[in-house]
């Protein structure tokens, strides 16, 4: 029975989620094809890929809390996929900047990264995601052992940098970055609460022993 559910899960549910994660890209490509990206198409592409990067980061960070709260352990099996899609959309976001904003002008890019806080922060988040993507395979998980989890805690910092990147570029209307920031605070706050709770119960167990 459990085996059947597993098979069903990996043959149907996971591919469906995979395709769903590609829908934002498909939608953007469709809009591009139709010339429906609006008056400033490059800006639209840049903003939309940025939005989806943040959304996938938050979704990835939501997996563990949801798993614990729902007790549905299979949720965990979406985490890597969601994380890699976050990296995928960040990559697209960077590609838009590289090609359309700077047209491979590396000198200008270096100057931008060095001088513009929001770009410094966004670029750092992008760089930090690379080792996480590279070490996302089962083989790497085994090889790194306990260090794997230590390394992958970087995602908390990356998400904070991502929200900061957004908040830092808007002129006056901070509502949307604040929304992302609020959601991120909930997800990180949950972890703090959980860790403190566990640390607590661990000492309790020790003292009763």
């Amino acid at each position: 029975m459990a085996l059947q559910i597993d098979r069903w899960f990996s043959l149907v549910v996971k591919p469906l989620v995979f395709v769903a994660c590609l829908l934002p890209l498909a939608w953007l490509l469709w809009l591009t094809w139709q010339g429906q990206l609006g008056v400033n198409p490059v800006e639209t592409l840049s903003h939309r890929t940025g939005d989806w990067s943040l959304r996938f980061l938050l979704l990835t960070l939501a997996v563990t809390p949801l798993r614990r709260l729902s007790g549905w352990n299979r949720l965990q099996r979406f985490r890597r996929m969601l994380g890699l899609f976050a990296f995928f959309y960040v990559g697209l976001h960077f590609a838009v900047y590289l090609v359309f904003d700077q047209f491979f002008d590396w000198q200008a890019i270096v100057a931008d990264v060095a001088k513009r806080p929001y770009i410094t922060v966004g670029f750092t988040a992008f760089l930090l995601l690379i080792p996480l993507a590279v070490t996302s395979t089962n083989g790497m998980m085994k090889r790194l052992g306990r260090n794997w989890q230590r390394l992958h805690r970087l995602v908390y910092l990356i998400a904070v940098l991502g929200v900061l990147h957004y908040a830092w570029l808007v002129k006056a209307d901070l509502r949307e970055p604040l929304l992302y920031g609020g959601l991120l605070s909930v997800l990180l706050g949950y972890r703090l609460w959980w860790w403190r709770g566990r640390g607590h119960s661990a000492t309790v167990i020790r003292s009763t022993r």
Binding site: N40, V42, D112, K115, R116, P117, Y118, W168, L169
Partner: peptide
């Protein structure tokens, strides 16, 4: 003179792909 947060050296003319 750059804006503190972004460069003013270039601009995207609406309708153009590149700056």
């Amino acid at each position: 003179v750059d804006h503190p947060r972004w460069t003013q050296k270039k601009e995207r003319r609406i309708g153009d792909l590149f700056r």
